[in-house]
Simulated scan of single mutants.
Amino acid sequence: MTPASQIKPRPVRWMWQDRVPAGALTLLPGREGIGKSLALVWLTAQLTRGMLPGIHHGHPRPVIYAASEDSWAHTVVPRLMAAGADLHMVYRADVRTERITNDQRVSGVEPLTLPRDNTELTEEIKGTGVAMLALDPLMSVIGSAIDTHRDRELRTALDPLTQLADDTGAAVVGLSHFNKAASSDPLNLITGSRAFSAVARAVVAVARDPDADDGSCVMSQAKNNLGRLDLPHLRYVVREATVRTDEGETRVGRLVFLGESARGVDDVLGDTASGEDRTERDEAAEWLRAYLTDPAVGGEAPATEIYKAAGRDGIAQRTLQRARSRVGVRTTPPAPGRPSVWSIDPTKGDTQ
């Protein structure tokens, strides 16, 4: 038994300010072909150049990048170059093995496998000062004997991984895929056991916006156990970039952020949800518009008061959050002694 008085409290440290915590597991899920790997490459480039807002801003830090689905020579390195990463600070994770076969020592190289390689990986992260362990995708580094659809089995890999993050202070960011179910909740769409989203402290989801003329995608904070959930949605596009190699030019994708987005991932996913879900969201949007435009409210109100008022009328907090973009709500972050404030932004949403 350890009394709480003997446990030293620590503040949350953010690798990417308010979005990706250091020393914890973060998931980056989405459907295939919308730039998830490019988002991870972008994070890698920003970290190695000291440009990412957060605790490492102004201090370039190394990254260990484990990629199993793409060729390093043809895809990963050219993408890193296009994103402006410092290649000297990005490390590929390989596991060197030695076996005795027919009385002869045979050496080889195997891909990273967790939790088998956790001890050695922890030592490398500490010794190199790595800020992020990038797993592209997370599923590929989990031992093949583990059934990733069984909660208890999967936790035998995820729990040691979160312990690795806590012990080293490095952020562990793993890519994951959406399944083919129809839901407006990104957490319900993550392929595999529910343990993936349960163990992760943060989930940053991405989705392509079919209503966007420029083919852009949106990025939203779908889970944030250690910080704010009402963060601005971000919008990005994937543009072609030409990279020069010793053998000629090659073309790869490069992620470019366009700024904040009125629509979030749950809005995009909600467009394919059931009619009942859409009706609930529409009703919540109408309620929110009426509430904020009420002269007694004056156009803005603390989020906590809005949640309470909506709850009295039977509107769930999650539904209200999904309805914000339809109304064109602008949010201001909370500050010491002051909650987040919602107000109607006339330049966004359908304010009628």
Rank of each mutant, 00 (worst) to 15 (best):
A93S: 15
T148G: 11
G54M: 00
L87I: 10
P339N: 08
I344L: 01
P62Y: 05
L161E: 00
L52Q: 00
A301H: 13
G349Q: 00
W14P: 06
E120P: 09
S5D: 12
Y307D: 09
A182R: 10
G192T: 11
R155H: 01
V329P: 01
T351F: 11
D266F: 09
P295E: 09
A212R: 09
P78F: 01
D117R: 07
P29I: 00
G337R: 01
K223Q: 06
S107P: 07
E120L: 15
G270E: 05
V63H: 03
D151Q: 12
M1D: 09
K223L: 03
S184T: 08
E153L: 02
G275C: 07
T119F: 11
V20D: 03
L27H: 00
Q104G: 07
T97A: 11
T279S: 15
V109K: 06
T250E: 02
A212Q: 03
V252E: 10
A181H: 07
D86A: 05
R19F: 04
G35C: 01
V141D: 03
T119V: 13
L112A: 00
T242P: 04
N188Y: 07
T122P: 02
I344K: 02
A200T: 09
V329N: 00
E249L: 13
D94F: 12
A335W: 07
T48S: 01
E123T: 11
L138P: 07
Q321H: 07
T242H: 02
G248N: 05
W72P: 08
T347Y: 08
S71V: 08
H88Q: 11
M132I: 10
G108D: 05
Y307F: 08
D214Q: 02
D209T: 04
S144K: 14
T319G: 04
P339R: 06
F257S: 04
P232Y: 02
S107A: 14
L121G: 12
R278W: 11
A290S: 15
A310K: 02
E260R: 07
T75V: 12
E300I: 06
V203A: 10
T347V: 07
R61L: 11
N179H: 01
H149K: 14
D18G: 03
G84D: 05
A93T: 08
N179G: 04
V77H: 06
G50K: 00
V109W: 03
T250S: 04
